[in-house]
Amino acid sequence: MLSVQQLRKQFTSVLAVDGVSFDVPGGSIFGLIGPNGAGKTTTIRMILRILEPDSGTVTYNGASFTKATRDILGYLPEERGLYKKSRLIDTLLYLAELRGLQRSKARVAVMTWLERLGLRDAAQRKVEELSKGNQQKVQFIGAVLHDPAILVLDEPLSGLDPVNQNIFKDILLDLKQKGKSIIFSTHQMDQAERLSDALCLINKGRVVLGGTVRDVKKRYGRNSLHVDFDGDGTILNTLAGVQNVMLYEHSAEMELMPGVTPRDVITLINPHLDLRKVELLEPSLHAIFLQTVGGLETAPKGKEGVA
C-alpha cells in the first residue's frame, strides 16, 4: 500500500501543497482530481521524489523510498513528448534501463508491450514518424515497462480517441487486477467516476473531499434531479426551488433545495417542456466538483510551474 501522509510544499510565494494525505492500497485505482493549479502535479512530483517535500512522508508498505526502491515507481507525465529523432526501440530500452532493468530483459518487455499496443512493426521507426496517439502509447509503455508496483499517471487519457481510451482503460484495469497501486490525475470527472475506486479532490493545496466514489456521493445524498426533455431548456436556469443547474442540449442535472420535492419541480417544468425521463440520483462527480471548488474547473488551462 502506498501511503501519503501530511505532504507539504512551500514555493517562494505560494503554499502549493498543504497537508495532503491519502492511501492507495495495492490493486486499486486512485483518482486525483482538482482544478488547475490546485497542487496535483506538485503532489505527484513529491510522490515520485522529483521534489523534496518540506514535510510529510510517502511510504510504500511502511518503508520510505530509497535510491534502490524508487525503481518500483512508474510515471507518465502530463505534457507528453519523447526524443523525436530517436528510434522507438532505443528510447524504450533507455527508459527501461534507467529503471534498473537489464538490457536483455528490457528487450523482451519492450517487444511484448509494443505487440500488445499494436506497434510491433514500428519498433525501428523514429518517434517523430508516429501519430500523436501512437506516441502517447509509446510513452505509456515507457511508464509500465519495468512492471512497477506503483504507477503514477498524469492525465493518462487526455488526447486519446475513444478506441485508444478503451485500450488504455483495459490495460489499467488489468494492472489493477495484478495488484498494482495506480494513481491518476484528471480533469475529466466522468473518467474519474468510471475508473477510480477511491479519489480525492484537491483545491488550493488541500484535500477538500476524499474517499471511495460511493462514499463521496453518499455524502451528498440523493438530492440531484436528472431530467431528459424535448424543447428549449433555458427555462430550467430560472426555475425556482433548484440550484446548480447544469444544462445540456436535451438533458439537465440540478440540485434540489432543502424541502423541495421532485414532484414540485416537475409541476413547474411541465408547462414548458416535454419531459421524457426524470430520475432522482446521487449527484454526478462533475456536479460535486463544481459545487466544491465553485466553478473553477472551467478556468482556462494554465501551466503549473514550480519555481
Binding site: 535510491k67 524508487r70 525503481d71 515507481l73 507525465p77 526524443y83 527508459l95 529503471r99
Partner: peptide, 17 residues
Amino acid sequence: IEEKSNRIVEVLVSSCS
C-alpha cells in the same frame, strides 16, 4: 532544453537523481 520541453526530464529524475 529538449528534455525540459517534452517533460522527459520528469521521467528521468523520477528514475535517477
